[in-house]
Design a binder for these strands. Structure first.
Length: 970
RNA sequence: GCGGGGGUCGCCAAGUCAGGUCAAAGGCGCAAGGCUCAGGACCUUGUGGCGUAGGCCUUCGAGGGUUCAAAUCCCUCCCCCCGCACCA
């Protein structure tokens, strides 16, 4: 068995536990109001405790923690709280499945490490919630999140329920709560709404709204269900499946005939439906009905494609626009004997002519005729008929308009006519709405088929309210969004949001205060809870009796309304809570996964805007993408979910934090993999080991520095600047890249360049300075390892509250940066020549630029800087007498350098200009030994002013920042 | 359909907002070399084409355009992914 030698280097678990303990003991993450200090308030969407958390959850939480840690180091009194969202139905569904000994779920729990004894207790929903609540919390602690745990709560705590009641009273008082009906997936045996987690195979039931047009027949109505009510003008007949069972039902004073399964569904959607009698489909065929719109008398004909399970089992036939209808008619025309069975005259069918009602550009008069021929459709059971129907529907819906024969709808676009005709038919009670599952069949976990129930008395939050919307949009435009690309999406969500059903019949949560049969659902009770954290500490510590938390109490705490001396809670406590709320609010940054953009995050803005005064509305939203596992989506069925706490033991918390956040930028999906984690782990350990070599080196003191020292000190400033900029925009991948990887590379280059002086005390102090900078910049990402190093470097306090590094302008040294760039580019060019020519160098000669080239070079840069067009660069330069006097040699040189000058980035151009003429001979002469060692060959510097040795006439090629090179081979 | 995101050198993926050091970071894979009894790990080098001098040519979904200069800006088209609710 091979033991990882790395275990000897850095024991992640031991060090992480040590610092987690110290953080907790020292209470550095507990934030209380400090009037003199600026605050920063960060929250992240609280978790739903029905499964262990995995690496995917960790991304959002880690990001929020990194941000909080960064802001804390910048001196803000930073608060990051956490709570647990018990509200909802999945936990309930799970406990039911445990009660019924569901093997699949039990296996799932086992596979994520839940013991059998614990699973046994999961027959109670609260036990599930409490178990995973604890598991999640431990995971957060083990990840090193800087959370103030004094503010923890669950959403079914009585105090929280009181808070939610207050929220709903507020919404109601502003008329944002409405009541209505809406269709919902429903299990007829359980008598309960059915969501995705309640179905076999976790299929989401999709509800479709049909218009059932009531054709009139001898005192009965035949409700023909359609998705295209506008085609009512083109109906030629009604289709009935002769082999199906139909029933006659009575609703109010109306008698309807529809298929047997449809009648059952109908009774779920409509009260007072009674069945009168059953009848065979065949007994209906051959009769006649009247089109309620056109008054036309049309026959009832037999068709096999009519599915009694689908909608009403009565279908109106529009052969001009529905391929199925045309095909069925053609079938009958081919088999007239079928008509005789029902006593129908053959003439009936041959007289059926398609009646066009929609005209679309590019489509013939009767589009179905063309389609049937083109696709070679044979009969009504042809599988391609489905596809043809869809295609035609799309084209006509988007491009078609109603023909002249359609009366008041003539000329109207189909998309509009459809809505109008539907509304007209329903309001004149010539039609009714009929709902059905359109992606069925879907089965409830109990085995019954899911149907549609029309929930009446449903409560909604009316996010469609135009005034409310416009205030939200207005505030949104003032909010910071990270990443900014999401703004458009948010704006669109605000636009199309309408009524949101806000209560359910079942689930954990807070009952609606004025209608206790309903429980406020989970997305509606989690919109303003960030305010609750600010008082949760006091509620927890003072053990305030929840029953005292009346709406008036919250009115005072959050809105400053009412008289604090006349409420059940003492005035002191009330004022303390109000003060704390006002200190931390508004929320500075809200973090969540991108899946919550179209719901939670938008509701969050809506509710804040509705309830709090404008100065307390949230300031920023941060959204991140999800995590992939080895390039694939994490899913239960793939079995590729690693519980977070297991991963922490495998790789260490710092490794996970850095891996997840360095894998991608905010919005992209981060691809986590074992190899990524291993690599990261090794890199962190190497950094730790390397840093330790400098922990006893004295810190930098203000003595003399050589060009290389100045270079690394200057580079370090650039890295601080870059990393801080990245952190401000939460470009975490970029921040880790520059602070950890680039700066380490620079240190290594510096040491290599220092050669024999690499162990001089001054060199070591410079390295120590850069290392300490990395430790500070990385502290938000890998806090444990950074604390450990910080301590090893002899510092007393926590790095977690150390000051974030700031750029020291005095340490920026452009001249040494340029001189190092010169060396690097010489190495690059020389290597390139050696590679291409295959010469094994016996001697390398470098020719520097003569002064006059530098002068022209700088003049050209100045010209560009002053806005001269690159095209006229040569002409402009020649206006300069000093250059003109050089004649053709100057022209030649300018042509040679112009590309590199024109393409030089602005920053670089400024840098070169501000440094002026670089003494290349001096720089090179000091580095000849290094270059000689690098290329394992003697190196000679030849002055470009008067080259004494230039057999291949290379000296002419020298350009500023780019000495000419001549290599002699053996 | 509506809305959002995206197509980069074998794969993954930076770069696009602020055009120029971009034949284009980094990782994986592949190839050669080093280390080693050997394998793994690790290190070095190479990885669009051509080239015995730091160069040239062709590339960033396709096609046009703007510009001294386009992966980056503008227009048109093609293709892929995600969300559309009452559910966390």
């Amino acid at each position: 068995m091979v033991t990882l030698s790395s275990n000897l280097d850095f024991d992640f678990q031991k060090v992480e536990e040590k610092w987690q303990r110290r953080w907790s003991e020292s209470r550095i993450f507990e934030a209380d109001p400090e009037e003199a200090r600026p605050k920063f308030y960060v929250t992240v969407a609280y978790p739903y405790p029905n499964m262990p958390q995995h690496i995917g959850h960790a991304r959002t939480y880690t990001l929020a923690d990194v941000y909080a840690r960064y802001k804390r180091m910048q001196g803000y009194n930073t608060l990051l709280p956490m709570a647990f969202h018990y509200t909802g139905t999945p936990i309930l569904a799970q406990s039911k499945r445990i009660q019924s000994n569901d093997k699949e779920l039990i296996e799932q729990f086992k596979s994520v490490g839940v013991s059998e004894d614990v699973i046994k207790t999961f027959d109670s929903p609260l036990n599930i919630a409490r178990y995973f609540h604890n598991d999640l919390k431990l995971g957060m602690i083990e990840m090193g999140y800087s959370i103030d745990w004094r503010r923890e709560f669950t959403t079914i705590d009585p105090a929280y329920s009181k808070f939610i009641e207050w929220q709903f009273y507020k919404l109601k008082s502003k008329d944002y709560i409405t009541k209505g009906t809406h269709p919902i997936g429903w299990c007829p045996s359980c008598r309960n709404p059915v969501g995705q987690h309640d179905t076999k195979g976790d299929a989401e039931p999709e509800v479709g709204e049909f218009v059932a047009i009531k054709f009139i027949m001898d005192g009965y109505y035949l409700p023909a269900a359609t998705l295209r009510p506008e085609t009512i003008f083109g109906v030629t007949n009604i289709w009935i499946n002769p082999r199906s069972d139909y029933v006659e039902v009575e609703v109010g004073r109306e008698k309807l005939i529809l298929s047997k399964p449809a009648a059952k569904k109908f009774s779920e959607q409509q009260s007072g439906v009674t069945t009168i009698r059953e009848l065979k489909g065949s007994s209906l065929v051959g009769k006649y009905a009247v089109n309620p719109v056109t008054g036309e008398r049309i026959p009832l004909l037999p068709a096999d494609f009519v599915d009694p399970e689908n909608a009403t089992g009565v279908v109106m036939s529009v052969p001009a626009h529905a391929p199925y209808d045309l095909l069925a008619i053609m079938d009958l025309q081919k088999h007239p004997e079928r008509l005789k069975e029902y006593g129908l005259d053959i003439g009936v069918i041959s007289s059926l002519k398609p009646i066009p009602v929609v005209r679309s550009p590019g489509l013939p008069e009767i589009p179905t005729l063309d389609l049937v021929q083109r696709l070679g459709l044979r009969d009504q059971l042809d599988p391609k008929a489905e596809e043809a129907t869809k295609e035609l529907y799309q084209r006509e819906f988007h491009n078609g308009e109603m023909r002249a024969e359609t009366g008041k709808y003539a000329g109207m676009p189909v998309s509009k006519a459809k809505e109008e005709i539907k509304n007209d038919l329903i309001s004149s009670s010539k039609a009714l709405k009929f709902y059905d599952i359109i992606n069925g069949p879907i089965y409830c976990r109990c085995g019954s088929k899911v149907t549609v129930n029309l929930m009446s008395d449903q409560w909604f939050i009316n996010y469609g309210d135009p005034r409310w919307k416009s205030t939200v949009k207005d505030h949104l435009s003032k909010m910071s969004l990270l990443p900014e690309e999401l703004r458009e999406e948010f704006e669109n969500v605000v636009d199309w949001l309408k009524e949101k059903a806000c209560a359910r019949r079942a689930g954990l949560g807070t009952p609606l205060p004025w209608d206790k049969d309903w429980i406020i659902e989970s997305l509606s009770d989690s919109t303003i809870y960030m305010a609750f954290y600010t008082i949760a500490k006091t509620l927890n510590e003072a053990k305030i009796d929840p029953s005292l938390l009346t709406p008036e109490v919250f009115d005072y705490i959050f809105l400053g309304q009412g008289d604090p001396s006349s409420l059940g809670v003492t005035r002191d406590l009330l004022e303390k809570m109000r003060k704390e709320f006002l200190y931390f609010y508004p929320l500075d940054s809200r973090h969540s996964g991108r899946d919550l953009v179209p719901n939670h995050l938008t509701f969050f803005i809506f509710n804040h805007v509705a309830i709090f005064p404008p100065q307390l509305w949230p300031r920023q939203i941060v959204v991140n993408g999800s995590v992939l596992m080895e390039g694939k989506k994490m899913s239960k069925s793939l079995g590729n979910i690693i519980p977070l706490r297991k991963a922490i033991r495998m790789y260490g918390a710092d490794t996970l934090r850095v891996s997840i956040l360095s894998a991608s930028e905010l919005l992209q999906d981060a691809d986590f993999s074992d190899s990524l984690a291993r690599t990261t782990k090794v890199k962190l350990q190497e950094f730790y080991k390397f840093s330790l070599r400098y922990c006893n080196t004295p810190p930098l003191s203000g003595e003399e520095f050589d060009s290389l020292d100045k270079w690394l000190l200057s580079r370090t400033q650039r890295i601080i600047e870059q990393t801080t900029y990245s952190m401000e925009n939460l470009r975490v991948r970029e921040a880790i890249h520059s602070s950890f990887f680039i700066l380490q590379q620079d240190i290594m280059w510096y040491l290599r360049r220092k050669g024999s002086q690499a162990n001089d005390e001054r060199t070591r102090s410079v390295v120590r300075y850069s290392l300490e900078t990395i430790i500070k910049l990385m502290a938000p990402f890998s806090p444990h390892i950074c604390e450990e190093l910080w301590e090893k470097f002899g510092h007393k306090g926590f790095i977690s509250v150390e000051k974030w590094p700031e750029v020291q302008p005095s340490l920026i040294d452009e001249r040494s940066e340029l001189s190092e760039e010169l060396i690097k580019s010489i190495i690059e060019d020389t290597s390139e020549i050696i590679k291409v020519t295959g010469i094994a160098p016996s001697k390398i000669y470098y020719y520097t630029s003569p002064k006059w080239k530098w002068e022209i070079y700088l003049t050209l840069l100045e010209l560009l800087e002053s806005g001269v067009d690159p095209k006229s660069l040569l002409r402009e330069a020649m206006k300069n007498p000093a250059i003109r006097s050089k004649g053709g040699i100057a022209t030649k040189f300018i042509n040679a350098v112009s590309t590199s000058i024109v393409t030089m980035p602005k920053d670089q151009r400024k840098k070169v200009l501000s440094v002026g003429i670089l003494d290349e001979s001096d720089i090179l002469s000091k580095n000849l030994q290094f270059l000689s060692e690098y290329f394992k060959s003697p190196v000679e510097l030849v002055s470009g002013e008067a080259p004494h040795y230039d057999p291949k006439r290379k000296a002419d090629q020298a350009m500023p920042m780019r000495p000419a090179i001549y290599i002699e081979g053996s």
